[in-house]
């Protein structure tokens, strides 16, 4: 049980670290976008994880979970609601990022972030 719990946390943290690592080290802006998505996934996983209560079931009120006992039987539903929003927003951001990245690389003739440094100092 605990193993699962910490595995999820570990995976999430790992995703975040891998994502940030990618963001900081990749040069191609599309790959950077991809790295962001990875990190984002990690964060979302962590968000779901934060509402997880050991030994409880999904927060869906059906025959298995009587409404009266729901409070003590299901995991915290709030993070699950939040993570939906977060995923949606994440998709929007990722889409926008890709658009910007593609257009930028077309305009600038390169997808290498090291060459997008006209503005500095």
């Amino acid at each position: 049980m605990n193993v699962f719990y910490w595995t999820v946390a570990g995976t999430a943290s790992g995703l975040i670290i891998v994502g940030l690592w990618g963001v900081l080290t990749r040069k191609n802006i599309l790959r950077i976008g991809l790295a962001f998505t990875i990190a984002d996934t990690g964060v979302n996983l962590l968000l779901v994880w934060s509402g997880y209560l050991p030994g409880r079931t999904t927060p869906i009120l059906n025959g298995d979970v009587p409404a009266a006992e729901a409070v003590s039987a299901v995991v915290d539903p709030l993070p699950q609601a939040l993570v939906l929003t977060s995923i949606v927003i994440g998709v929007a951001v990722a889409a926008l990022f890709v658009v910007v990245a593609v257009l930028a690389s077309r305009r600038l003739g390169t997808a290498d972030i090291r060459r997008m440094k006209e503005l500095k100092w």
């Binding site: 994502g19 962001f36 994440g90 926008l96 910007v100 257009l103 972030i113």
Partner: peptide
């Protein structure tokens, strides 16, 4: 503008995380 937009997007990505 593309350079600016890209930088802003990256910063906001990090801020989100």
């Amino acid at each position: 503008r593309w350079e600016v937009a890209l930088k802003t997007a990256m910063i906001s990505g990090l801020v989100t995380i």
